[in-house]
Amino acid sequence: MGLNINYIEGQTPLSEDEQEGLKISSITTREELDEFEQLNIEKAIQWTFGKKLKAEQLFSEKFIKDLHKRMYGDVWKWAGTFRTSEKNIGIKSYLIGVELKQLLDDAVYWTQNKTYNSQEIAIRFKHRLVSIHCFANGNGRHSRLMADLIMEKLYNEKFFSWGSTNLVKATETRTAYIKAVKKADQQDLLPLIAFAKS
């Protein structure tokens, strides 16, 4: 039967090879996939509870990959592995390691030197991470959780609310989120910061 996904604006289509990485053969629709992924993500969030992380740990390739694997490893074989295919968003796959290293080094510098306030560091990091698009799928949710962990683990501040809704479904809130991301693409982070707090 296979996986039948209807993509909405801002979602990255999976290649046939990536779809074959699905671990649960009974999943056939977007709704079922979303449900299983959400259960996996909740387990990943529980994994972060009580973890004490310094900037050097949080801003590491190992943590970026580990978190993605924790978020999607029950559902996808390739979870936590950098993509090797080209997408409608993100950089060329062979540049992922280099660009991510630059972002991680920048983020450590920002935190050590208080270059920006906590919210701007979290959102700036989230936006650049999703722009790199490290993984075949789940980059938006992964980057939002990273922003939340930056707020909680590095600054002892509360998670962002992200519009207080599920951003995977096609809603007005998701449309507002995509619009804010596109503004950030043009170097205007304020709408994305405002959305994250809404």
Rank of each mutant, 00 (worst) to 15 (best):
G2I: 12
G2N: 15
L3P: 14
Y7L: 11
E9P: 06
Q11R: 10
Q11L: 06
T12R: 09
D17P: 00
D17G: 04
E18N: 02
E20W: 02
L22R: 04
S25D: 12
I27A: 06
T28K: 15
T28Y: 10
T28S: 15
E32L: 13
F36E: 15
E37L: 13
N40I: 02
E42K: 14
A44F: 07
G50H: 01
G50I: 00
L53F: 00
L53I: 01
K54E: 11
S60M: 04
K62R: 10
K62W: 04
K65W: 03
L67A: 11
W76T: 05
W76V: 05
K77E: 13
K77M: 09
A79L: 04
T81R: 13
R83H: 02
T84R: 07
T84C: 01
K87A: 12
K87S: 11
I89M: 11
G90H: 05
Y94G: 12
E99D: 14
K101Y: 02
Q102N: 14
Q102L: 08
D106S: 09
T111F: 01
N113E: 05
T115N: 00
N117L: 08
N117A: 09
E120L: 12
R128I: 00
L129N: 11
V130Q: 11
C134K: 00
F135Y: 10
G140P: 03
H142K: 05
R144W: 07
A147E: 01
I150D: 00
E157N: 08
K158N: 15
S161F: 12
S164K: 14
S164P: 02
T165S: 12
T165I: 08
T171L: 05
T173F: 03
T175F: 03
Y177H: 07
I178N: 09
K183P: 05
D185R: 03
Q186E: 15
Q187C: 09
L190H: 07
P191C: 06
L192R: 01
A194H: 10
K197Y: 04
K197D: 12
S198P: 06
S198F: 11
